[in-house]
């Protein structure tokens, strides 16, 4: 009898937690993807921070967002001004240097596009994409 009461109370708590969780999932529906892309090139903020050696950070967001704030030392490289920005990036890059590209958040795709073009058009190796983008970086710095 006691055990049945305990199970009922556990179910009550489990259901109580479900309600705000569903609300929050609805609120964040546009900010987080439920489908993890089958991408092996993503790197988390903590992994990126632990990388040894110098890393080149590339910001794939629009110019205005870059100007408003970016990862220290990051260079701008977005699709809008690709041809104009790429030479400067390649001049600053040293052979063997790891490159991490980021965009605004988890659901954006600009960073993956820039990473793909860097591999295919500039033949760069060791190009990674920051999981969660600028948003994840800011959260980790709080």
């Amino acid at each position: 009898m006691v055990r049945r009461g305990l199970i009922r109370e556990i179910l009550v708590l489990l259901c109580l937690a479900l309600l705000p969780a569903l609300g929050q999932a609805f609120y964040f529906r546009d900010r987080i993807s439920w489908r993890k892309p089958a991408r092996q090139d993503e790197i988390t903020v903590s992994q990126a921070r632990s990388l040894t050696g110098t890393v080149m950070w590339l910001d794939a967001r629009p110019d205005g967002e870059f100007a408003a704030g970016h990862i220290p030392g990051a260079k701008l490289l977005n699709a809008e001004h690709w041809d104009g920005l790429l030479p400067e990036v390649l001049n600053a890059w040293t052979p063997g240097q790891k490159v991490i590209v980021y965009c605004s958040k988890q659901s954006c795709d600009a960073s993956h596009e820039v990473a793909r073009r860097l591999r295919e058009e500039a033949n760069l190796k060791n190009v990674f994409v920051l999981e969660g983008g600028w948003e994840a970086w800011q959260e980790s710095a709080k």
Binding site: L16, P20, A21, L22, Q24, F28, I32, W34
Partner: peptide, 18 residues
């Protein structure tokens, strides 16, 4: 899997709070 991680990320904090 990622989808399960998302679901737990929304659910577990509220379970802890309650």
């Amino acid at each position: 899997p990622w989808s399960m991680a998302v679901a737990l990320a929304f659910y577990l904090p509220w379970l802890e709070i309650w």
